[in-house]
């Protein structure tokens, strides 16, 4: 199988990826450098004044340290949103976006099977997410050193991996829906709904006992429950990766059999 589609996907992704990585680097470093200015604000007294549910969601039940600070300020909302937006944007574009522009049709008239085109684009997207994950890990490690956060490198990598898996989940979901339907709007809408729903489930599940058992289904819960900056690699990582792969597997037969839209 020719890897031409993968190579093209990587080339297309290289430039935006530089900007995304710089953005992530800037946010993480900025927040890390602020730690020494704000650490006195996060007193045990202040933290214990928060409702227990919030403490659970953001994992600051224990003492406030550099890792907990980064988990609350960067790894709970800003980075997950960035990774999800990155994934959904790329994923919706790679098949459905190109199809609606009309540029996919000549590619689909070549002897490369549709499943192989989908797979190579999925791999290209994954490589992009891994690169952004690496940038996050590096930024966290550097930020920890510069800002005196004392986050072990392994824990920084686990935290970044949680973000990366969320991005991969979002991206492959959007790619799969786009491949199955041919509509970029549908890909973004479905992925958006699933992720917003997943986020609400993650939050509400921590507050309402009746919803709590369903919380495990949330990709956010799966990604961040142990930290995300943490010494433990959560089982949720495997669930996220397998679910993302399942989205693709479900999309293959639909993509193979459906009509291609004219641009």
């Amino acid at each position: 199988m020719s890897g031409a589609v993968l190579r093209k996907t990587l080339r297309d992704e290289a430039r935006p990826l530089v900007w995304w990585s710089l953005g992530v680097l800037a946010i993480v470093l900025l927040m890390a450098l602020l730690w020494n200015q704000v650490r006195d604000v996060y007193t045990a007294e202040l933290l214990s004044a928060y409702p227990e549910e919030l403490q659970e969601i953001f994992n600051f039940g224990g003492a406030m340290d550099g890792a907990a600070y980064m988990n609350i300020e960067v790894f709970s909302i800003i980075l997950p949103v960035l990774f999800v937006v990155f994934g959904v944007g790329r994923g919706a574009r790679l098949i459905a976006g190109e199809e609606q522009e009309g540029v996919l049709e000549p590619v689909l008239a070549t002897p490369v099977p549709r499943w192989a085109i989908l797979l190579q684009k999925a791999l290209g997207l994954a490589v992009g997410v891994v690169a952004l994950t690496a940038a996050t890990a590096v930024a966290t490690i550097i930020g920890s050193a510069l800002g005196d956060l004392a986050i072990p490198a392994t824990e920084a990598v686990v935290g970044a991996a949680a973000m990366g898996l969320l991005g991969l989940y979002a991206g492959w979901l959007a790619l799969a829906v786009g491949a199955a339907t041919g509509h970029r709007g549908a890909a973004m809408a479905v992925a958006g709904l699933v992720l917003v729903g997943g986020y609400l489930l993650h939050i509400i599940g921590a507050i309402l006992a009746a919803v709590e058992p369903w919380r495990v289904a949330s990709p956010f819960a799966q990604a961040v429950d142990e930290g995300p900056i943490s010494g433990v690699v959560p089982w949720g990582f495997a669930v996220l990766a397998l679910t993302a792969a399942a989205f693709l597997a479900l999309a293959v037969p639909l993509f193979e059999r459906r009509d291609i839209e004219t641009g």
Partner: peptide, 27 residues
């Protein structure tokens, strides 16, 4: 060899690069 009625190609590629891409896909 197929030409669609509304042929569109990747605008950011040169004609040469685009044709080489499709040539690769054709083996």
């Amino acid at each position: 060899g197929y030409l669609s009625g509304e042929f569109r190609a990747y605008r950011d590629l040169t004609a040469e690069r685009y044709l080489r891409y499709l040539a690769d896909l054709r083996g």
